[in-house]
Design a protein around this nucleic acid. Sequence first.
DNA 1: AACAGGTTGGTCGAAACCGTACAGGAGTGA
DNA 2: TCACTCCTGTACGGTTTCGACCAACCTGTT
Lengths: 237, 237
Amino acid sequence: MASIEQGAVQNRLLRALRPEAFEMLQPTLERVGLPLRSFQVEANQKTGHVYFLESGLGSVVARTGDDETIEIGHVGFEGLSGAHCILRLDTTPNQTFMQVGGEGIRAPVAALHRLMDEHSPSRDLFLHYVHCCELQLAHSTLANGRYNIGERLARWLLMCHDRLRLDDMPLTHEGLAQMLGVRRSGVTEHLHILEGALAIKATRGTVHIRDRAKLLEMAGGCYGTPEREYSRLIGAL
Amino acid sequence: MASIEQGAVQNRLLRALRPEAFEMLQPTLERVGLPLRSFQVEANQKTGHVYFLESGLGSVVARTGDDETIEIGHVGFEGLSGAHCILRLDTTPNQTFMQVGGEGIRAPVAALHRLMDEHSPSRDLFLHYVHCCELQLAHSTLANGRYNIGERLARWLLMCHDRLRLDDMPLTHEGLAQMLGVRRSGVTEHLHILEGALAIKATRGTVHIRDRAKLLEMAGGCYGTPEREYSRLIGAL
DNA sequence: AACAGGTTGGTCGAAACCGTACAGGAGTGA
DNA sequence: TCACTCCTGTACGGTTTCGACCAACCTGTT
């Protein structure tokens, strides 16, 4: 296995590590493929590795007692899956899987903990990342409670666009509906509205971002705060 | 100021500390009153103390760019306000204030950090608490996205009941509406339904819990997961 | 060329929820 | 006692979203 150099890494958390910290982690790192619908974290099962995404999109999903589900977190090259490990937990009731396939770099949880124990700037970096996730989640709560489908959809597409860095995003209406927790045909309808405003172009299995500014406008105040906090604390994407 | 003894403390986090850890914190602790609507955390302003609640109920609220707000967290004697400090941040865009007045014990943030640095079981305790907050928040997202007002109201009353340990809870329809992010009259209507089911009795300014089991039933799967995780990780209430 | 499976477009009535408004009651202070 | 404020009950029309459906369509496989 070729060794992994910090300069060649896409993941923003790995990049944000100081070189000496990266060196500590480096021997334990391993590049892995992350195919569509593969799981990085299963509910209530011990998590052995954290996955620093290089490409693709991961979704963290929560489930209630009566099997309702919704997306509660979004992971791309700006983050990692398995954030509960940062909080010294080996299990969580939530699950994480790839919504859009990609690849990543994984590290054993023990190596992450060693780094956090021995290097406080790195510890703070990861803790701050947890805070960003929490903020993102807070704004999902806000979005679900106070905004309509059109605004939430625009927000979701923006968040996805941030993470995939592709104008052609491989997404289906059905997938979007599951993430947003709404009806599939509701998504279809609102995609048409966004398309009518020339913000996007939707074709079978893909959503093409045509005018990001327009999309921002249509998301209202629903998008933004967590993103600003991320760039303040961890760095611009 | 009389010194504070661990045995006499109501707060579950302070109680869960090992005695030697409590001793480290003890000289910095200070009992304070927490009147209705007082703020413990202001948005984007430096937080000097964390507040371990002894009684009353705190609400963490998020706000979007266009001034929509919603409750994203609930704090009572089981937790503390200022959880972002555990993540080594001195500010957060969210705010925390007392929804029901009470009292608490505050500690300087620096003392909290010292304890977390020098005593890893305490560090883990606080990190686990952050995880519980995150989980609670995740389920608020889920509730707002997938459950109707009646179920969300029942969930909120249960969470409040857990934290206040009072059957007569001082709450107004207006206050509930703001927390849930719905119309005031929607709350009135659903309180009547809960009352019709003999789960509660609502009088001016108070909601009386009459049949908690009934309330659990009416909340559906909307309530429970975060609470179970709290008792697993930190201890039964 | 036919087929199967996944994806999209669209419809229907029903239900939930909203914004707004107003009136009456309960508590509070002058 | 009166005036005032806060809280609660209730109503209205209008909008959003749901649940359930079906038809059409695209894409790769047989």
